[in-house]
């Protein structure tokens, strides 16, 4: 088992290395420089800037410097935010996205899973139909529509909340809802179908026949197995929501990293793009690792790495 994790961690590091290399060279191939302006900069100034950012070094040297910096979590200075390092920017902006993403994930777990379970148990009743109707809308309406509607209704027409600024608990409702609506709907549908499948299994009937209470059967046998696909989904989803959503952060005008990341692409802020890409990649890889660990808690067969009778 230890070998398994060591192998996983090594392959994660290798993946990061590949991503870093690819990003670096793709960035170099991108047309248009970071110092492109409506009025081109004076050649002396351009030379100064290139010197400062080591852009006049040979490509291989830039690459090596970059990779060494990466190991030290030093991605250099942003080309746009004068005098601010990429690491500082990440430290400044990531918490906003993390907070929203964490709340959205919590929301998905606390609301989405129970809805799925109830729907499965009350299959084909009005409760199930209503829940699945809303969930179907949820997976078809994009987050930015939810966000825009929310702003125009609750901040505009009704004026119940402030459209921007996370300075009051109520201002979290909109962004969290918009961020989680799709996943919430998806998770409740996933939980429902997964539950239904388990409920039809023979061992469920056997367990009941053996005299176990309904609650115990559902809890001990059904739920546990039904949650495996949900957990598989939650890991990458968590990584996706905590790294911020460009659209939602833009609609609610939040200083998160998602908006900043996309803007930095438009600005050709090379160091920022590469730094955040690596940061995202690392988060994603860590989440996938955590999901694997979570599996082994839920299902011992995975931990033991071989099939075993239930």
């Amino acid at each position: 088992m230890n070998n398994y994790y060591i192998k996983r961690i090594l392959s994660a590091i290798f993946t990061l290395f590949i991503i870093g290399t690819l990003t670096f060279f793709m960035m170099k191939l991108m047309p248009g420089g970071p110092f492109a302006r409506e009025r081109p900069l004076a050649p002396e100034i351009l030379a100064q800037l290139e010197e400062k950012y080591h852009l006049n070094d040979p490509i291989w040297k830039q690459y090596i410097d970059y990779m060494i910096g990466m190991i030290k979590f030093d991605f250099g200075y942003s080309y746009r935010e004068l005098g601010v390092s990429v690491t500082e920017q990440i430290i400044l902006k990531f918490p906003v996205s993390l907070r929203l993403g964490a709340l959205a994930t919590l929301f998905v777990i606390v609301i989405g899973i129970p809805i799925g379970i109830v729907s499965a148990l009350k299959q084909n009743t009005w409760v199930d139909q209503l829940a699945m109707f809303i969930a179907t809308i949820g997976v078809t309406i994009p987050g930015f529509v939810v966000a825009t509607l929310y702003v125009s209704i609750f901040a505009g027409s009704l004026q119940w909340v402030d459209a921007t600024d996370l300075d009051h608990w109520s201002s979290y409702i909109g962004p969290v809802l918009a961020l989680s609506f799709y996943s919430l709907s998806f998770v409740s549908r996933l939980t429902r179908s997964s539950m239904l499948e388990i409920l039809r299994q023979d061992y469920m009937r056997t367990a009941r026949a053996n005299g176990l209470s309904k609650v115990r059967v559902l809890y001990k046998h059904a739920l546990k197995n039904a949650l495996i696909p949900v957990v598989t989904y939650l890991g990458p989803m968590f990584a996706a929501v905590i790294t911020g959503s460009f659209v939602i952060e833009k609609v609610f005008s939040l200083g998160g990293i998602g908006r900043y990341y996309v803007d930095s692409v438009g600005n050709r802020d090379y160091t920022m793009i590469m730094g955040v890409t690596m940061f995202y990649a690392a988060i994603y890889i860590v989440m996938v690792l955590l999901v694997d660990i979570a599996y082994s808690w839920i299902d011992p067969r995975i931990r033991l790495g071989k099939k075993q009778g239930d």
């Binding site: 702003v151 125009s152 004026q159």
Partner: peptide, 18 residues
């Protein structure tokens, strides 16, 4: 001073008096 770069959001805040 706010840094809202989405015109629609800013407009909503304007009409709301914020």
């Amino acid at each position: 001073g706010d840094f809202i770069d989405l015109e629609t959001t800013a407009y909503v805040k304007y009409t709301a008096g914020d």
